[in-house]
């Protein structure tokens, strides 16, 4: 029972929260922070074979101020760490972070003096993608996971 019964099929009722989250999850504007090898699979994912446009996230904004998903693609070392934090801080809310590949997630197999072992030591992360580098299908899977995550979010925290 709802307004549909009174006004016919030209109406739909929903929760405000649901609609806003629904709109957000299908219109990600992502900022690719591409550093290393994973960038190659990132390119593949964005090209026509795998076609990330099907999920509404095909349009990279190359300014963090216009983006709402930060893709951290590849290894982040100590020299780059301040740059990544600065990029993250420039993004406006709401924002999500996707850690692309083993290096961004945990430093990967670069356990040495130069590399930060996981970008979650620098910024908070929402979705981790395993793989070195992850295959495009894994990236799409992670994107769907992120969409589910966004759909579950509360507007008022």
């Amino acid at each position: 029972m709802g307004l549909e019964t009174i006004f016919g099929k030209s109406w739909a009722t929903s929760k405000m929260e649901y609609v806003i989250n629904w709109a957000r999850k299908f219109s990600f504007f992502d900022y690719p922070f591409v550093t290393a090898c994973c960038g190659m699979e990132f390119m593949s994912t964005f090209a026509s074979t795998y076609d990330i446009a099907r999920f509404g996230a095909e349009f990279p904004r190359f300014s963090p101020r216009q983006a709402d998903v930060l893709f951290v693609v590849g290894t982040v070392n100590q020299k780059l760490a301040p740059v990544l934090r600065m990029t993250y801080e420039q993004m406006v809310e709401p924002k999500w972070v996707l850690s692309f590949g083993a290096c961004a997630t945990s430093g990967g197999f670069y356990d040495n003096y130069a590399v930060v072992d996981g970008i979650d030591k620098i910024i908070p992360v929402d979705v981790y993608i395993p793989g070195c580098p992850p295959r495009p299908k894994a990236v799409l899977d992670a994107l769907i996971k992120l969409q589910e995550h966004v759909q579950r979010e509360k507007l008022i925290k």
């Binding site: 290393a36 290894t75 070392n77 020299k79 740059v83 197999f109 670069y110 130069a114």
Partner: peptide
């Protein structure tokens, strides 16, 4: 440059020859 320095050469010194191939 240096924003992707991952310590490859130091890592090699601490790995055996087979382990270096993935690097």
């Amino acid at each position: 440059i240096g924003y992707l320095h991952r310590g490859f050469e130091k890592t090699c010194e601490n790995s055996n020859y087979n382990q270096i191939i993935p690097y």
